[in-house]
Nucleic acid binder design. Structure first.
Lengths: 243, 243
DNA sequence: CGTGAGATTGACTATATTCAACCCTAGTGG
DNA sequence: CCACTAGGGTTGAATATAGTCAATCTCACG
């Protein structure tokens, strides 16, 4: 489904109903959220929030992909998070974010005004609990990424990145052939992995030459040899035989 | 104060009373925690929790320093968090940790059995809210560290590390000369910064040669030129003039 | 005072970056 | 319908930065 096809839906039919911040809500709670929400679309490349900008809305990502990134004075940038459908933007008790939030694909947000939402969080343990879980999931993801950034080789970084996309594709139950669409340009992938875009390109083509993946077009990847890919991530010695 | 001198205290007199998970608790809530808590000491180098081990206790770090680290099959390790006094170990809804928790100095924990504590969290919004804040603080710290790991040079990493220690020393109100004690060995610092211990050593001595810091003994550092140190972190162009 | 873990230093190497040229290809307008 | 163009991607050569391996030093401790 293309993002531009998206139209507002009732919460009960929302594709992220069971995973977003509203996951634990019962009917009454959902009705309140329903009355508060507004949808907003963004085009690929558009900045959703600038670092330091006051945070008037919080939101759930309905579909599409967004990135969180930090930039140094001299222009070096590092992506510090990747937001996928059901992920949450904004946090209780903070009035601004200290990174940029950018749409890497077309995307749709389900937004709530921050102030009323914060009031709702206090009154609704189901939402507070789910927010806590989401924050802890992000923390786990950040820590895995720290290991990647600090200790993995370029090859392992690329393999880990592709494997992550593959896992997600399999988990989301869609076609279980391993054809993936890259949600980012080489440059953005480089910023995510702490590499340069040239190194990203070289490693993609090295894996292709070895027959681990195949590439076609700019954003299509197919995983040809999942076992070899797993081995190349450096994460485990058995190439993921247990999964 | 040496850790070994620490003896159990009443919560009201606890050094981390206003920053730990109990920060928002009123007298009644504090009385409940008081009745549940037990103190436990660890020696420097001792492992507090192994990755994957079942989590029977959660705890606040009363004093000393602990580290969270992940290790790859081939032995490469990356520290993914540094725990300072008032930081919390363990999390609601998870029965194990997926990193090792190690004491880098002598330290004292204020422990609670996990099950009763989780029950208390549900019944006590003051604790749940504080846990959320602590989790978000950790998330911010992790993201800053991702920028460091992914994009900073060895020199910038070392300067950032020393600056962080200096900030903390100033903040904790202790003597405002900039003499610091390193809470870790070169090897541990290397694991924190995504470097090798040789590179850590070389960069420390380069900064010393340039007169930015001075070193004496194994763990004593003095910041001689804070402005130069700030500049060397790469974080801002003005060397921190506004602070 | 001796010992050993931790730290330093040096020489060499490897990996990824930098700089530069060139190549696709999707989208545009003639 | 085709040629043009620009943004993204690839490839190569030279370089730089941090890693590796190895020898030596030094401090803190018994």
């Amino acid at each position: 489904m293309k993002n531009s096809d998206f139209v507002a839906v009732r919460c009960e039919e929302c594709p992220i109903r069971h995973r977003a911040v509203c996951a634990r809500c019962d009917g009454d709670e959902l009705a309140i959220l329903e009355s508060m929400k507004t949808y907003k679309q963004y085009a690929a490349g558009e900045t959703i929030l600038w670092r330091g900008e006051p945070l008037d809305y919080v939101a759930s990502l309905v579909h599409g992909v967004a990135s969180l990134s930090k930039t140094m004075e001299d222009g070096r940038t590092q992506m510090v998070g990747l937001l996928l459908p059901s992920d949450f933007i904004g946090r209780p008790g903070r009035t601004e974010v200290e990174f940029d939030v950018v749409a890497t694909t077309e995307l749709t947000l389900c937004r709530f005004e921050r102030k009323p939402f914060e009031k709702l969080v206090v009154e609704t343990p189901h939402i507070a609990q789910r927010l806590m879980e989401l924050a802890l999931d992000e923390l786990d993801a950040a820590r895995d990424w720290m290991l990647l950034l600090g200790r993995k080789t370029a090859r392992e970084k690329i393999a880990t990145f592709i494997d992550m996309l593959a896992q997600r594709s399999l988990a989301s139950g869609s076609a279980n052939d391993l054809k993936l669409e890259l949600p980012m340009t080489r440059d953005q992938i480089a910023n995510y992995l702490g590499l340069t875009l040239e190194t990203v390109s070289r490693q993609f083509n090295a894996l292709k030459k070895e027959g681990v993946i195949s590439l076609s077009g700019r954003k299509e990847i197919e995983v040809v040899d999942l076992l070899a890919l797993r081995t190349a991530t450096g994460d485990d010695s058995d190439g993921g035989m247990l999964s």
